[in-house]
């Protein structure tokens, strides 16, 4: 297939860029994510997870079942920042949600 074919729709990363990450030593979906932004878009890898796993499996000559999945973080859905202001009094709560907001800067 044409190497310029988009794999991650949200971040618009193509096959070539993913294969480059693999050439540079990426083993897992999360490696590719860190190197290319694949999976960091607004759908949070719900669409590109599987196609990327297939490319990893092909490249490393593995079975699909030996290619794991990426870590998924909260919030599970793209929601607006203000929405996260939870009413809970449990301080743990604020910290879990607070943390994931910093990491998931795409989730407005």
């Amino acid at each position: 297939m044409d190497k310029s074919t988009i794999v991650c729709r949200c971040e618009e990363i193509n096959i070539d860029e993913i294969e480059n990450a693999l050439k540079n030593g990426a083993q897992t979906f999360d490696d590719i994510k860190r190197l290319t932004r694949t999976g960091m878009g607004s759908c949070q890898s719900k669409v590109c997870l599987h196609p990327v796993r297939e490319i990893i499996a092909d490249y490393h000559n593995k079975d699909l079942q030996d290619v794991g999945i990426s870590r998924m973080r909260i919030p599970l859905k793209p929601i607006r920042m203000g929405t996260l202001a939870t009413e809970s009094k449990d301080s743990n709560v604020a910290s879990v949600f607070g943390e994931s907001v910093e990491e998931g800067d795409e989730n407005r």
């Binding site: 919030p75 599970l76 859905k77 929601i79 929405t83 449990d90 743990n92 879990v96």
Partner: peptide, 21 residues
């Protein structure tokens, strides 16, 4: 929508305006 879980095991749900457990 379920948007996450809390450290105490509860589920976080949002109606698009606010999140509650």
């Amino acid at each position: 929508a379920m948007v996450g879980s809390y450290l105490n095991g509860n589920i976080g749900v949002t109606d698009g305006f606010k999140t509650f457990e």
